[in-house]
Design a protein around this nucleic acid. Structure first.
Lengths: 395, 395
DNA sequence: CAAATCTGGGAGAGCGCTCTACCACCGTTG
DNA sequence: CAACGGTGGTAGAGCGCTCTCCCAGATTTG
């Protein structure tokens, strides 16, 4: 596929092909007649009523006939297992090109017990799924960035991601069964909440999987995460440097480990700078909850001069609430978010935010899974990425 | 899986099970010994060196033995083909639950020539891919919304989407081969540019596919689209109603059909209101190109009081340029975008935009493909959705 | 009441591939 | 020069499933 054939007309190709064989043991005549034989067979095989798709897909058998070798030899050339004489390889490869052979993956994975696919499971909150809608917020750029990052690591290894949602028990059963069916080799988990039962099920079933973000409960499953505490510290330091004194925080749900870490990291660093106690309101990572949390905090203290929100969406919500109260950003109140989402980057003024390298993290997830797949004995690992602070207009 | 077994201890299960059978021809003894026999066989079969995954997956054969019927009968019960006596069905189902059987999809699709999967192809610009990075902007919420919409239609039919990128020729070959391999049954295409060669290749190969947005060149392939002209008209009407008089437009690349339609629809409607000619600058749907286009237009006429951009990202770029020039939005200049992306919705002030129902469109794509898959004779169709105008702060 | 029809189950042939034997041939070597 | 290991090929047995026959028994019909 990579190389072009010498620019001769198709029939003329035979001659050079044969010449290349040189002193090889295979009769060139066999190659010639084989080709014709295959053509006939190709048509004959498809003699089913459905004239739908023209030309039944050629099989290993067909290639073998054309090349004048056995099925096994063709298979070896295709898979690069064991040594095959270079001349034979050439003949086989030419035959493959001639008949347009492409391996049937169903047949292959039936015997190898491997499909070249992994499942990417996105799991949302069950409650939200109750109304029949998809609860995962696919419009959140986070989702796309994760998928894009995974693709980057998966593509070079010719592994394709199958997308699945896991919101209900039925969904989870589907994931497990797809995995045990040999529909996919492993799973990449992205949960938006902490108490997802799926990781546990996967571990229980002994299925290879890697998750994004540390699980709420300890589990023998590899994961990648960002150093949430460090990120929050960065935000705190920055706010202190900017001379802000009446600082508050909007946290995510405290059962989510990342939310807890971000909050405590922020509190620690602020304490280190003399702010022993800072007011906190809890949201659930949505825009609306950011508005509500900020409003609540403003009701407690109208003179607030800085806010740290555990994600960008809530930070944006906070800005909305601040503006509604006539507080200017960043003049009166500085705002720092977390995630460095494109939402924040493109809003006016641009949102200062703690950046987690989502794409790299996702790519690492895929890499870890691929490694485990290649060597099942590999130990459970975790990779923690360092966050950075992206300073924009809101501080 | 759905029903619970009667709450008796496993050994006791035999008796009630047999009772239910009543006068059926199957010997009850066979059921009993079958169970034991299978257990033994289960372990025996996995006698390979790799002790890795405990318990080899049970097969139809195993279920048949336990139920005391033939493989064919179990298959019939599983697939609901042909009538099977209710008592037998019960026995089989119980056996399935007992051994924890789950069909091997590779084996099934090897014979049925059907996988329960479709490929979702996202194709970006080749040039952008040249530097090795993924050119598709996965951070664009558009991507996630499309996938989410498809999932909504695919999930109830138990079809899973496989995600693939098509940027290089190699990628496209991969898509085609995955399809002809029987790795997936059809393709759902989302291109970000007009002259994608993939649709042509797919049609040529006779592969079932549906695309998002009308192709640049006529092609016998189904597609869904939004009435771009109507959407642009909505924008024009709105601007006229707001009393704007010096109106300009920022268009997308004119080789992209949607960009062309949006521009001409806008021009037509403006002409209808007496604005025979409006200045136009062309961008490429990116934020940066919006900034550039707006700057260019401002250079030509500093007194502009309204802008229509062919997508939200360029509209946001335009606002950036306007602000840089000291023009206030919406006081001095009104801005209307197209797409109703969450980026525009969450920016301050909120971007007035033409909304295309992306999720519904994507779901419709999936539905069309599923229909074609169910009945290959089905004609090529197109479904056009009506856009609506979402008015926010920028007008 | 015999013949035709229907109904529900079983046997067995593959689907296309991989992989473990096994074998023929070669050049070495004691 | 017979015995020997290495190369490079073939043969053939499945992987787990579906699906087309085929057949036994129940039911209808002339």
């Amino acid at each position: 596929m990579g190389h072009d054939r010498p620019g001769a007309a198709p029939p003329a190709d035979d001659a050079p092909g044969t010449a290349t064989l040189g002193t090889a043991t295979l009769g060139t005549a066999t190659v010639g007649t084989g080709m014709l034989g295959t053509a006939t067979l190709g048509v004959g095989t498809v003699g089913t009523a459905t004239v739908e798709r023209a030309g039944g897909a050629p099989t290993l058998e067909d290639v073998a006939r054309v090349a004048g070798v056995s099925r096994a030899t063709v298979s070896r050339v295709v898979n690069g297992k064991r040594r095959v004489a270079p001349q034979i390889q050439d003949v086989v490869r030419e035959a493959i090109a001639t008949v347009g052979y492409v391996p049937n993956l169903a047949a292959r994975s039936l015997v190898t017990r491997r499909t070249g696919a992994v499942i990417v499971v996105v799991s949302g909150a069950e409650e939200a799924a109750a109304d029949g809608r998809v609860s995962v917020d696919f419009a959140d750029p986070f989702f796309g960035r994760v998928v894009g990052g995974m693709l980057r690591a998966l593509r070079p290894r010719d592994v394709d991601p199958i997308l699945m949602l896991a919101e209900t028990d039925a969904d989870r059963a589907r994931v497990i069964s797809a995995l045990s069916n040999g529909n996919a080799d492993g799973a990449l988990l992205v949960s938006t909440h902490g108490d997802d039962p799926l990781p546990g099920l996967l571990v229980e079933a002994g299925m290879p999987a890697v998750r994004f973000a540390r699980p709420a409960h300890p589990l023998p499953m590899s994961y990648v995460d960002v150093a949430n505490r460090d990120g929050a510290r960065l935000a705190a330091e920055h706010l202190v440097e900017r001379g802000r004194r009446r600082v508050v925080a909007i946290s995510g749900p405290l059962d989510v480990p990342s939310a807890r870490d971000r909050l405590s990291g922020f509190q620690d660093e602020m304490a280190r700078h003399g702010h022993a106690w800072i007011p906190v309101a809890t949201g659930n990572f949505t825009y609306g909850s950011g508005v509500a949390a900020m409003t609540e905090l403003l009701d407690q203290d109208g003179e607030i001069d800085a806010v740290f929100a555990s994600n960008d969406l809530m930070a944006l919500g906070a800005i909305e609430a601040l503006t509604a109260r006539g507080r200017r950003v960043p003049e009166d109140v500085a705002v720092v978010g977390f995630d460095d989402s494109s939402l924040g980057a493109h809003s006016r003024p641009g949102l200062t935010s703690v950046r987690q390298p989502i794409e790299e993290m996702a790519a690492e997830m895929a890499r870890i899974l691929l490694d485990v797949l290649a060597d099942p004995e590999r130990r459970v690992t975790s990779v923690i990425f360092e966050p950075t602070l992206v300073v924009r207009g809101t501080t």
